[in-house]
Amino acid sequence: MDLIDTLVIGAGQSGLATAHALRKHGIAPVILEAGDAPTGAWPRYYESLTLFSPARYSALPGLPFPGDGDRYPHRDEVVDYLTSCADQLDADIRTGHHVTGVEHQDGIFTVHLADGRTLHARTVVAATGGFTNPYRPALPGLDSFSGTVLHAAEYLRPEPFTGQRVVVVGGGNSAVQIATELAQHARVTVTTRGKLRFAPQRPLGRDLHFWYTVTGLDAAPVGRFLTHPPTVPVLDTGRYRAAVAAGRPDHRPMFTALDGDRIRWSDGTSEQADAVILATGYRPALDYLTALDVLDEHGHPPHRDGLATGLSGLGFVGLEWQRSLSSASLRGVGRDAARITRRLSSYLGSQAAFGRH
Rank of each mutant, 00 (worst) to 15 (best):
M1C: 05
T6M: 03
G10M: 04
G12V: 00
S14N: 09
A17Y: 08
G26M: 06
A28Q: 14
V30G: 03
G35R: 12
A37D: 02
T39P: 00
G40P: 01
P43H: 07
P43T: 09
L51W: 05
P54H: 12
R56N: 03
R56M: 10
L60Y: 07
P61Q: 02
F65H: 12
F65W: 09
G67T: 11
D68S: 13
P73C: 09
P73M: 05
R75P: 00
E77H: 05
S84V: 03
T95N: 14
T95C: 15
G96D: 10
H98V: 10
G101E: 12
E103K: 07
D106Y: 05
A127G: 04
N133P: 03
Y135Q: 11
R136M: 08
S144L: 03
G147V: 06
G147K: 03
L156H: 15
P160S: 06
F161M: 00
V168M: 13
V169C: 07
G170D: 02
S174G: 11
S174V: 11
L196M: 11
F198T: 03
A199Q: 14
G205M: 03
R206M: 14
L208Q: 08
H209A: 12
F210V: 09
F210C: 01
W211K: 04
V214P: 11
D218Y: 09
V222G: 08
T227H: 15
V234Y: 07
L235I: 12
G238S: 09
R241P: 00
A243D: 08
A245Y: 01
A245G: 03
P249Y: 09
D250K: 12
D250L: 06
R252H: 09
S266E: 08
S266V: 10
D267E: 07
S270W: 00
Q272N: 05
V276R: 05
T280E: 10
D287K: 03
A291N: 12
L292C: 01
E297Q: 14
G299V: 03
H300Q: 13
P302W: 14
G310D: 15
L311I: 08
L314S: 02
W321S: 09
S324L: 04
S324M: 09
L325V: 15
S326N: 13
R335W: 11
A338V: 02
A338K: 10
R339F: 14
